[in-house]
Write a protein that binds this DNA or RNA. Structure first.
Length: 549
RNA sequence: GGCCCCGUCGUCUAGUCAGGUCUAGGACACCGGCCUUUCACGCCGAUAACACGGGUUCGAAUCCCGUCGGGGUCACCA
């Protein structure tokens, strides 16, 4: 892409904004730059997704860069869940960790020489200076500015522009950091691809530190150098970086770089609020009924699986949550796409190809969008119901195994026809793969059934109900074949004979054979269980009922 | 507090740049009803929003000004 006309040096003058529309002349290159925190924030996924979509839409490249400037230990370990999450979601990168690329390295920790060289260049050009102020001295100035209700601007009192000055400060035992020599006047106009024209006054910008006394460099310097070296054309990132843009532009211009275009995305907000969503605020979000439903639904599944469920690892703000519970990555991606972006007033269903085709930054919303658990589930549901039974079996089996309801990977487990039968009968009641555990009763031993006590008392507490069930069980024993049609015919005949309502028997039977008050069709239930299990379970329930009264 | 951004149903949004066709459309949730052996699905229906105040205009959700509200950011974190 060509150099931006308005942002040529000097950048401290008012510039002419470019029109919001843009032409992509050369190869588009975008990037997602997570820092290795050990988890993939759902908001981060949204940023990654938009970068990825933009690149794919334009036939460009998507780069994954790792912002580990400040991390020393366990980078690989802290990075693994992030890479795994992106892969799970189908957000693939053309360059970066694991795949390499011609512009590497892609870890900031491996690029320190490039940063140091950039600092030297800024120093030589007079765009940065060595500063010998002590932390407390800066702090005092900052507080004074705040007290005066003005923007903090460093006095440059300990600035050393000559070797003599530096020597003098060093004689006082001071150490130098490198600061940007930010312009003090003029206006900077950013032509943001999402927000349009945004103006900043240089007078409000401060001389940010770009290199510490120990020679290590800070993020804003690093990111600018990286984006240049990686030839990033479009920096698409969260809105929280908007106010960092002036200093980054100053660095880039001072270094003579071609400038990328910027697009600042609104962040993903808390459910029912406009505050940025945070992983650490689960106790607060739980007070939101919809969020609580999402969380508890997942928690129940995770507990059945014996997963670690501390908030640190099991948390709906973190992508892993959805994988652990059995959401579909396509559904998560489709939902996230709609969070802050829309094509028109009605299209919501986007295949991977369709979203790539349709995605443009012009249609990204400016206002933050709050995370809506209900909508997520609705999208998930839609995707789930489209799956073939075979695919559902594939997805559900690991949950049965994980909950100890099915043998790990024996051939018997592989071919267990009950899974498909239950999935078929349960239909849309299975919204995430982990929901198969709601039908655990089909996989339990007859005497291991757990009864819904309240419902049991209601449906089987009375002597008449027990007697009815006992009589009907005798009839059931003769049904052949023992399938849904035959058992239904049998029950209907029996009911008519006795002059009772079908519900008088349906509910007690369901309770007796599944232990639950609700479930899918009773006759499908009986058929899947089979005659032996049904009769045994009825017997067991009657024994229990007799003992209870 | 300084700077910056944002503001349409509870939520996601369409409409705002090029003012009328918007008595503001769709989706999710909620509520009512139908279906029904329970639950779920499905179907039908209902409630529900242009933050406020001034302008400009024949006409404003759309343009201008102001107010209020919300958020982001002000690190030798990323």
């Amino acid at each position: 892409m060509g150099r931006k006309r308005g942002l040529d040096r000097p950048c401290c003058q008012t510039v002419t904004p470019l029109p919001r529309s843009y032409d992509v002349v050369s190869m588009v290159r975008t990037r997602f730059a997570p820092s290795p925190t050990g988890y993939l924030h759902i908001g981060g996924v949204r940023s990654a997704l938009f970068n990825w979509l933009f690149a794919r839409h334009h036939g460009g490249q998507f780069v994954l860069r790792i912002d580990d400037t400040d991390q020393q230990r366990n980078v690989d370990e802290a990075l693994a869940p992030i890479l795994a999450g992106l892969k799970w979601l189908g957000i693939d990168w053309d360059e970066g960790p694991e795949v390499g690329g011609p512009h590497g390295p892609y870890h900031q920790s491996q690029r320190t020489e490039a940063y140091a060289a950039a600092v030297e260049q800024l120093l030589a050009g007079g765009f940065a200076y060595r500063d010998y102020a002590r932390t407390e001295e800066i702090q005092a100035e900052r507080e004074a500015a705040q007290a005066a209700k003005k923007s903090f601007v460093y006095s440059r009192r300990w600035m050393a522009e000559t070797d003599a000055q530096a020597a003098q400060f060093e004689a006082e035992g001071r150490q130098a950091v490198v600061r940007l020599k930010t312009p003090h006047e003029g206006t900077l106009v950013i032509d943001d691809l999402v927000r349009g024209r945004v103006e900043f006054n240089w007078a409000d910008e401060q001389d940010h530190v770009i290199q510490r006394a120990d020679g290590s460099c800070l993020y804003h310097l690093a990111t600018v150098v990286d984006e240049h070296d990686h030839q990033i054309t479009h920096v698409i990132r969260a809105e929280e970086h908007l106010s960092n843009t002036p200093r980054q532009l100053f660095i880039a211009e001072s270094l003579g770089y071609e400038l990328p275009r910027f697009a600042h995305l609104p962040y993903v907000a808390e459910p029912g609020s406009k505050t940025k969503m945070s992983k650490r605020k689960i106790p607060k979000y739980i007070k939101n009924p919809e969020f609580a439903a999402l969380y508890n639904h997942g928690l129940a599944i995770a507990e059945r699986l014996g997963l670690e469920t501390s908030e640190d690892v099991f948390n709906p703000v973190v992508t892993d949550f959805y994988e652990a519970v059995g959401y579909l990555p396509e559904a998560i991606v489709n939902y996230l796409l709609l969070l802050g972006w829309s094509l028109d007033d009605r299209t919501e269903d986007f295949s991977r190809e369709a979203m790539i085709e349709a995605f443009t930054l012009e249609r990204v919303n400016k206002a933050p969008a709050s995370f809506d658990p209900n909508k997520l589930m609705a999208v998930q549901d839609r995707y789930m119901q489209r799956l073939s039974i075979d695919r559902k079996v594939e997805l559900a089996r690991p949950f049965l195994v994980g909950a100890g309801l099915l043998a790990a990977s024996s051939d018997e487990a592989e071919s267990d026809p009950r899974i498909a039968a239950v999935l078929e009968a349960a239909g849309d009641r299975i919204r995430v793969a982990g929901d198969i555990l709601d039908f655990d009763d089909f996989f339990l031993a007859d005497d291991a059934l757990v009864y819904d006590e309240k419902a049991f008392a209601k449906r089987l507490g009375a002597d008449e109900a027990q007697a009815l069930l006992r009589d009907f069980a005798t009839r059931l024993g003769d049904v052949d074949p023992f399938d849904a049609e035959a058992t239904e015919a049998c029950l209907r005949a029996f009911v008519e004979e006795r002059g009772i309502k079908i519900g008088d028997l349906v509910h007690p039977i369901r309770l007796a054979v599944t232990g639950k008050a609700k479930g899918f069709g009773l006759f499908e239930t009986l058929a899947i269980l089979g005659r032996d299990a049904v009769l045994r379970r009825i017997e067991l329930a009657l024994t229990k009922a007799a003992a209870g009264t």
